[in-house]
Amino acid sequence: MLEPIINFLTNILVWVYDVLGHNFGLAIIVFTILIRLATAPLTKAQLESSKKMQELQGSKKYQDMQKKYKSDPQKLQQEQAKLFQEMGINPLAGCLPTLVQFPIIIGLYWSITRVLAASPHQMLILMKGMWLSNAANLLPINNHFLWMDLSQPERLVLDFIPANLPLIGAGIPVLAILVWITSYLQSKMMTPTSNNPNDQTAAMTRSMTTIMPLMIAYITFLYSAGLGLYFLAGNLFSIGQYALMGKLNIKNLIPGRAKK
């Protein structure tokens, strides 16, 4: 289902790599930013919808309604639908941009994996889908960026660091650590705080802001550095984008000083 998207993005990515002087690390960063810029209007729409919904859920009318129909979920649903209609809120408006962005983000992820082509099968699939006329001169991609081999899990090996560290092996997983930090900062700073202590959505969001950064960092730890670079570039872009839109909740980072 995603194949045409992956194939299209793969060719664009290789083209960007060519334009940037055969630097694949830089190509991943620039390509991620370009894709995020292209999907920025959707992110904006999603943010505005979430904000409206958050305001509604914090309103007295909404909370009173929750209490009043606590024992009658069907009636509660009907009343909520009425309220959404009255206030001109589409409850799906927050999800739709995500649904549109999701195939693009997954396609981007897969196109990076495909271009790295670390095995014969992957290389054959990559070659089959290339329609750039000079592709034969561009492949295989130069995987080296800074100290990293982008097709391998990243570890920074320094002379004074023991060769076989427990759990992580040879070297420090710098990229996985950076991905974890930026994912955590991103999710913390971009999460609106709920005033309602019984708000189940807020509780769910709190769990996500803890688990998701760990999961993404673990993927970076296990898989190729190219993917880690993509996660890092995406996180930094999102933080910057939200900052420019004035949506960052810096206070969320300070325990007990969440935005009221």
Binding site: I106, Y109, W110, T113, S119, P120, H121, Q122, Q200, M204, S207, M208, I211, M212, M215, I219
Partner: peptide, 29 residues
């Protein structure tokens, strides 16, 4: 809700991990 979160994460992990529904993806012959 807990189950929904887990299901969502699993879906993302499967998509990122390359589970296309065909099982083992070969890397060479």
């Amino acid at each position: 809700r807990k189950l929904l979160i887990l299901a969502g994460m699993l879906a993302v992990a499967l998509l990122l991990g390359g589970c296309s529904g065909k099982g083992f993806v070969p890397t060479s012959w």
